[in-house]
Nucleic acid binder design. Structure first.
Lengths: 130, 130
DNA sequence: CAAAAAACGTTATGTTATAACATTAAGACT
DNA sequence: AGTCTTAATGTTATAACATAACGTTTTTTG
């Protein structure tokens, strides 16, 4: 859990840790520029890719944004709930029943699912109740 | 079903109709340039957005690509199976059971699903059996 | 300490998508 | 048909997302 990160990677992760919403790489870059103008897109993307490989961070495919990981896991079988109103993203693990269901649903269509994964868009608890 | 399309829209749709795999807007643009150099990105995107609104075409969110629609429907409750090997995309409707399952899965996490929708990545029948 | 590997800095460029505004084409109503 | 209106298009520019390539520095390790 606590291998140590280089300062670049730590800086990028710190920004994502402080954000409940997913951020684009360039939003992260803007944030970093407040402290230091040295940052360049490639540097941010390199840090992000490392953090993603290590499951410190996830990429939300449907939004091309990044969010810090809040779960202990091996990187698969995730379920992201993305609120369309406030932008908050919550991360959950797909349970066995859900994994089975998704796998079987694909199987019925003669398709071998790579690995169960879900991104769901809608309204979070707070936004639903105004 | 058969309102008539302008020539730009017809041209873009014809290209997608001829492709079993999803195409990026710029791949479509390259195709169109073989016949006429007049095409510009904005023209292609305008046609695509119109075709998407009319459910002639879908956008595959996880790939930022476009595919022609093969189902009759109102635009919701789709399930796309995207083959990682050959790139083919097949489109299906989520049945009531699947819609219920996905909605309940979100509901258990205190989240109100916008509308059931799935993009699944894996291996299609052909690629699985080499 | 020397060699190798990993990370970083930097520049450039590739890819995806839309804003803004002028012009043309199409439909609708006397 | 003529004019008014709206829809579609052409065109230019630029925003937003992402990586290639290559040289340098730092870290690891034998």
């Amino acid at each position: 859990m606590s291998e140590k990160l280089t300062s670049n990677r730590k800086a990028v992760l710190a920004i994502l840790n402080a954000s409940p919403t997913a951020m684009s790489a360039y939003e992260i870059l803007d944030c970093l520029h407040r402290h230091d103008s040295k940052w360049k897109p490639a540097t941010v993307y390199r840090a992000l890719n490392y953090l993603i490989d290590g499951h410190y961070v996830h990429r939300i495919e449907s939004e091309q944004k990044f969010i810090s990981c809040t779960q202990t896991h091996d990187g698969s079988d995730r379920h992201f709930l993305i609120c369309q109103q406030c932008g908050n993203v919550s991360e959950h693990l797909l349970d066995e029943r859900a994994k089975y269901f998704l796998t079987a649903l694909a199987e019925d269509l003669d398709f071998q699912l790579r690995s169960p994964y879900l991104e769901s868009h809608g309204l979070c608890h707070n936004c639903r109740n105004n």
